[in-house]
Every structure is written in structure tokens, then in C-alpha cells.
Simulated scan of single mutants.
Amino acid sequence: MGNISLVAALLLCLLAFANANTFSVTVSVTENDNPQSCQEQIQSQRLNHCRMYISRSHQYFNDELSMVTDDDHEINQTQEHLQQCCQELRNMDTQCRCPALKKMVMQDCGRQGEEAQRMLGKARYIPRMCNIQPAQCSF
């Protein structure tokens, strides 16, 4: 009878020990924990305002990123496109912004060569103008 009590006590101790060392992990997935891939973000954010901003600013950007035009209406429209472009970029993850800008420029009207380089040069500084990261794209 004493052996049975001893075995029962040992079993209870083992069960208590095993139960004390058992843990569970609860993982809750929220929308922020599972961000869209860059490819999905690029497809959903078509960057239409960024495209309009770059095409409208084509004539009056120089190395210092200043405008050389007297047309106030054109300047206002261009600035509106820039503000909307900034919002489009803010809707994307930081690491997706530059690839999205590059893809937008390269797909836009099939630009190649020197024209593509000029447009990429303008797109490179858009994050800085929007005061978002990265401050400058390297493409």
C-alpha cells in the first residue's frame, strides 16, 4: 500500500512539473504585422500624382530643384500633384517607395536612355521634398 502511495505521489509530482514547464504562445496577427509585399503595394498605389508631378515639372526643374516659370496656375497644379504624390508614398512601406518610383518612371511611356535618366533624376528627390524616408532614392 505504501508503494502505491509513493508511486502516486511521484506521478503527481511529475505531472505538476510537466504542467509547470508547459507554456503556450498566442500570436495575434493584425494588419500591421502582416504588411503587403512591395509588389502588391506598387500595384495598389499606382503613383498617378507622382507621375503627373514629374511630367509637369519636366520643363522647370534644375539641379537645385527650383522652378523657373512665371505661370502661377501651373505651379499651383504641380504643387498639388506633389502633395498628393507625397500621400501616395506615405501609404507605402518605406522600403517600397524608391522601387515604386523607379518602376513608375520606367513604365511611363516606355521611356529609355537619356529621357529615363532625366525622369529618374527628378523622381530621386521626391521623398526629400515630401519629408519622408528614405530622403533620396539611389537609382
Rank of each mutant, 00 (worst) to 15 (best):
G2E: 12
G2Y: 15
S5C: 05
V7D: 11
A8V: 14
A9C: 15
L11P: 00
F17W: 13
F17L: 12
N19M: 06
N19F: 15
N21T: 07
V25D: 07
V27N: 07
S28H: 11
T30F: 08
T30N: 15
D33P: 05
N34H: 03
P35C: 06
Q36Y: 02
S37F: 03
Q39I: 05
Q41M: 04
Q43C: 05
R46C: 03
R46Q: 15
R46W: 01
H49A: 05
M52D: 02
Y53Q: 02
D63M: 09
L65P: 04
S66W: 10
M67T: 08
V68K: 14
D70S: 14
D71F: 01
I75L: 11
I75W: 02
I75E: 09
Q77N: 08
E80M: 13
E80S: 12
E80Q: 13
H81Q: 07
Q83C: 12
C86V: 06
C86T: 06
Q87C: 00
E88P: 07
N91R: 08
N91C: 01
R97M: 01
P99R: 08
A100I: 04
L101I: 10
K103S: 12
M104W: 06
G113H: 08
E114P: 04
A116H: 00
R118D: 08
R118F: 12
M119N: 01
M119K: 02
M119T: 04
L120A: 04
G121P: 02
A123H: 00
A123E: 09
I126N: 02
I126D: 03
M129F: 07
M129S: 07
C130A: 05
I132Q: 01
I132C: 03
I132W: 03
A135L: 08
Q136G: 06
C137H: 01
F139V: 04
